[in-house]
């Protein structure tokens, strides 16, 4: 294809996105679009799969049968999200095994928030309320993103995330209205998860490297800072409603902006965790790599059995 022809295709492609048309797997697309989408979708898929670990950590210790069932269902939803996001990546010509390899080798990233430990039951509330809350704010705009399979996956993901967020908040309500000891658990969890949740919405706009191109492709519709502000404005009243205190001395309603002003985020901590030195980075990777390696003989057996079955069928056909 000549350079001019490619230029032409690119112009048509950008025009389709500008018209809000969906790009489908078999459509022509610029290589950079394909790569950016694989990167973002796989990062999202990895986050779902690694995200199963901190919450899976409390399945066996959930305080009641009702909570246990809800937590199991939630973590199972996350596995499901991972599954269809990996499938969406496959539509762009990359296999799940390749993506796992990228995760296990550290080449691919996942959301840093999952490198924090879940140390008490209240963390199940805080993670649902804050982490899923922040995820929704990030993800709702993606229901209208330009790549069809991603957009459709996100519609379902967002519905389930929104349920998880309410479920997490409900755990917090119960704790906040419980005994002093339970209320303390809730406040402690909020103290530990608040700042990492704010960081989850990404570095400040000045430091974010992917924003401009992603905006054009509707992979991103608002800047990190705008999303963060939206999250804070939405969450502060929820904390107040149940009598919990946001751990930020500088948090103040700004009448003029009709928004909360908030304190400075410790970006050193953010980069420390992103670069692999958070409290649980090593444990999370060890768990994922361990499951994959220990499962190898199982996957091999399934393939060998399928092959045998196919051969037998063929023989019968002859």
């Amino acid at each position: 294809m000549s350079e001019e022809q490619i230029k032409n295709l690119e112009t048509q492609f950008e025009a389709r996105i500008a018209r809000d048309e969906k790009i489908e797997p078999k459509d022509w697309m610029p290589e950079k679009y394909r790569k950016t989408h694989i990167r973002q979708m796989s990062q999202h898929a990895h986050s779902e799969i690694v995200g199963m670990l901190p919450e899976g950590n409390w399945i066996t210790r959930a305080p009641s049968l009702r909570r246990k069932v809800a937590l199991l269902a939630k973590v199972q939803d996350e596995a499901g999200h991972g599954l269809y996001l990996y499938s969406a990546c496959e539509t762009l010509g990359v296999s799940r095994e390749e993506l796992y390899e990228q995760l296990h080798s550290g080449k691919a990233k996942y959301s840093s928030i999952f490198n924090y430990p879940t140390v008490t039951w209240a963390d199940m509330g805080a993670v649902g309320w804050l982490v899923d809350g922040a995820a929704i704010i990030n993800q709702v705009p993606l229901c209208n993103t330009s790549y069809g399979p991603y957009a459709r996956a996100m519609v379902r993901v967002c519905k389930e995330e929104s349920f998880h967020q309410r479920q997490g908040y409900e755990i917090m309500i119960k704790l906040a209205n419980g005994t002093p000891e339970q209320k303390e658990l809730a406040q402690d969890a909020l103290n530990r998860w608040w700042w990492p949740s704010l960081m989850m919405l990404g570095p400040t706009d000045a430091e974010s490297i992917h924003t401009e191109q992603s905006m054009k492709w509707k992979l991103k519709r608002k800047s990190n800072d705008d999303l963060r502000q939206q999250f804070i404005d939405q969450t502060v009243p929820q904390a107040e409603l149940i009598g919990l205190t946001i751990p930020d001395a500088d948090l103040k309603w700004n009448e003029e902006r009709q928004s909360y002003d908030f304190g400075e985020i410790n970006w050193d901590e953010f980069w420390q965790v992103v670069k692999g030195h958070g409290p649980c980075n090593k444990e999370r990777m060890k768990a994922r790599v361990g499951a994959w390696e220990e499962g190898e003989w199982v996957r091999d057996a399934a393939m060998a059995y399928a092959e045998k079955k196919r051969n037998r069928k063929e023989k019968l056909a002859i």
Binding site: T60, V69, V75, Q76, G80, A287, G295, V298
Partner: peptide
């Protein structure tokens, strides 16, 4: 079964075991 969630040999078996636990 619930203690295996997140640690299965594949996503599909993970989902299935969690489902049986549920």
């Amino acid at each position: 079964l619930g203690s295996l969630t997140g640690h299965g040999p594949s996503l599909e078996t993970d989902i299935a075991c969690t489902n049986m636990s549920l």
